[in-house]
Each structure stands twice: as C-alpha cells, then as structure tokens.
Amino acid sequence: MKIVVSHDEVVLREQEGDAFLLHVPSGRYFGLNRSGLVIWQAVLDGRDPLEALAERWPDVPAERRQADADALITALVGAGLAQAVEDRPGS
C-alpha cells in the first residue's frame, strides 16, 4: 500500500512552528503537529514515513512511531488529504 497526495488539491503552509493543510476542493483546514509534519513531508517525498520518524526521533520506541504513523495516515485518508493506492510492480 502506498500513500499519495494530490498536489493540486492540498496546500501546506508552515507558520511560527505550526503547520496547516488546506483541502482545496472542500475548503477545509487542518493542523499538523511536529510528527504529523514529518510524516506528511515523507509522503510528499515518496519516502517511508516510519523511516522519516526514526531519523527524527530515534529514541522513540518503534511501536510508538508505527502507531503515530498509522493514526495520522488514517486521518489523512479519511479527510481526503491523501489516498491509499495499491503498489504495482514497476510503479
């Protein structure tokens, strides 16, 4: 399973240490905390969010990182900010 973002539909803005997402089709706004921003940027870069979290917070237990990533990705997909797509050979 791969998580993808439509760049035309979601706008990120960082301000004063906070991060915000705009879902353009609905006009809804969302906030991201620090770990959420790391996960979001990893998704944008096509990287594994777990690896990005491990680089940023190596001392945090792997189970906690996994739970954070799962929770955020579920929320992002639920809000229409990202889509889960099947990995295809060669893609």
Partner: peptide, 14 residues
C-alpha cells in the same frame, strides 16, 4: 479557500 488560507494561517499562528 485557497486565497483565505495564507492570511488566516498568518493571523491564527501569531
């Protein structure tokens, strides 16, 4: 949505 987003973030964060 797009045009109000930046100014609203700018204000809310400060």
């Amino acid at each position: 949505g797009r045009r109000l987003f930046g100014p609203a973030v700018d204000l809310a964060a400060r």
